[in-house]
């Protein structure tokens, strides 16, 4: 069972505003899902390496991921910005005061 405090803490870490109802529902569902994950406890993983990156991938990508250091023409930044950011000025992103 996951506590309400835990849920609130995780929501803080994830930058999510959750309503009281959402917090309650999320607590119930996450508890069920975490229970389901507990089945992993029975698997013996002594001396098993995590699969962050397979040996095969490493071998293949080392062969292929380097390229010549040449400049490439990219679009001008104003054009790229205009489609994504809701608030901007003179081609710059406008952000909230940080300090």
């Amino acid at each position: 069972m996951i506590s309400e405090e835990d849920i609130k803490h995780i929501a803080q870490l994830a930058h999510l505003e959750l309503s009281e109802n959402e917090l309650k529902k999320m607590g119930k569902e996450l508890s069920l899902i975490l229970d389901y994950f507990n089945s992993l406890k029975e698997v013996d993983v002594t001396e098993v390496r995590p699969a962050f990156y397979s040996k095969e991938e490493k071998r293949l990508s080392l062969l292929e991921t380097t390229r010549e250091d040449k400049t490439q023409k990219e679009k001008n930044k104003k054009e790229v910005l205009k489609d994504a950011a809701p608030c901007q000025e003179k081609g710059f992103l406008k952000v909230k005061k940080v300090i």
Binding site: L40, V43, V45, V48, R49, P50, A51, F52, S54
Partner: peptide, 10 residues
């Protein structure tokens, strides 16, 4: 743990 189980599945 999940990443280790992933190795076993592979």
């Amino acid at each position: 743990k999940a990443q280790k189980v992933r190795t076993l599945i592979r």
